[in-house]
Design a protein around this nucleic acid. Structure first.
Lengths: 208, 208
DNA sequence: GTCTATACACTGATAGAC
DNA sequence: GTCTATCAGTGTATAGAC
């Protein structure tokens, strides 16, 4: 992230993010991005040369919105229970503010795994080194207190993210199948679901 | 599904599925589908008129690979514990056989929610009527035996699917972040994870 | 830096011979 | 039903005036 960003560059990036996230790399049109940014199509090429380079910039910054946050939650030194509650709450908030971002990232990640790999080589070769040990330790502590199953803490992280993420990814399906398209009911359900997830996890972990 | 399908039609659908699932609607090229099917580009239009209609056929059949299976698992009259175990196992198998299908479906579902809605109007206005009550009953039974929290059974279903699905959706990321790209380690982890999920859920539900 | 005009490639779709 | 040839439309990218 260069902090030396023209106002125009910033407008382009915001517009590009909106369009790319909604339409995907191949579905997005340079013209639409230009319109959304309120500038001329040629300027996109002036600043970012090609569509692909523009996409890369957007994708990298989109990734940045998620992973660093995860890290900070994991590194705090509160109890595992609190850590779980905070993670569920905060991560849910981030996702609900950008409901289309996850499906965008996951989609393009599957199409183009090298992107994500290069991202981690660049930014966080750290999650394994930093987050997991912290998590592992907390899990062990708790496993000793209760007679809980001392499973791989990576499973715990995957469980949390999966439960939080899936309803957002599949929002249109779930709204339709479970609530006959009723938006209000769905929103209430999702709000209550946050505390359900925390309880569900803690319940399982502290099982005597 | 007409069972009156030409051999050529079937070849086209298979090829189209492969390409659409990998590249998405806008990323897929009619030429590539034709090549993959070993036929001429014009034949695609002869059989399916437009790209969009071809896509619809593929999408509908892709959806069909998931939801009916879910239903049958839910409708059996075994215990909730067994139901969970079977669901996790069978659903994991389906997903691992088609690792790219979920991200395809979820991506296009978010781009075009009307598709999924029309699908449910057509095929299963039933999940709510059939699966949920069956699930609800089983959950209640168990809640009475243990002193478990009598939460909304829809949460249980979302929890299961989320935990099963997420690592498959984010496979490249997780393989990289958790296993430094080591495929073998990842596969072992995923195999063990199946039973972990069942235990994790049952643990939480039967919490005393 | 910003705009207009345009080049160039590609893609979905159709017409028509066989 | 299957193929070849071709068209019209669209999209990225560049050249050049200001």
């Amino acid at each position: 992230m260069d902090s030396t960003l023209t106002e125009t560059e910033q407008k382009i990036l915001n517009a590009a993010k909106k369009v790319f996230v909604l339409k995907g790399m191949s579905g997005a049109r340079m013209q639409e991005i230009a319109n959304e940014a309120g500038i001329n199509k040629s300027l996109l090429h002036y600043y970012f040369r090609t569509k692909e380079k523009l996409f890369d910039s957007v994708f990298q910054s989109a990734l940045g919105e998620f992973f660093p946050k995860i890290r900070s939650y994991m590194l705090s030194d509160s109890s595992l229970e609190d850590k779980i509650k905070v993670f569920v709450t905060e991560y849910s908030k981030v996702l609900q503010e950008n409901p289309f971002l996850p499906s965008f990232i996951l989609g393009e990640v599957n199409r183009n795994p090298e992107h994500i790999i290069s991202y981690f080589k660049q930014h966080v070769g750290s999650i394994k080194d930093k987050n997991i040990p912290a998590f592992h330790q907390a899990t062990k502590e708790l496993a000793e207190k209760g007679s809980s199953s001392g499973f791989d803490p990576r499973n715990l992280l995957l469980n949390m993210i999966g439960m939080i993420l899936f309803p957002i990814l599949a929002r249109p399906v779930i709204k339709e199948v479970f609530f006959d398209g009723n938006n209000a009911e769905f929103e209430v359900f999702m709000k209550n679901r946050e505390s359900h997830i925390s309880e569900f996890i803690i319940n399982s972990i502290t099982k005597s």
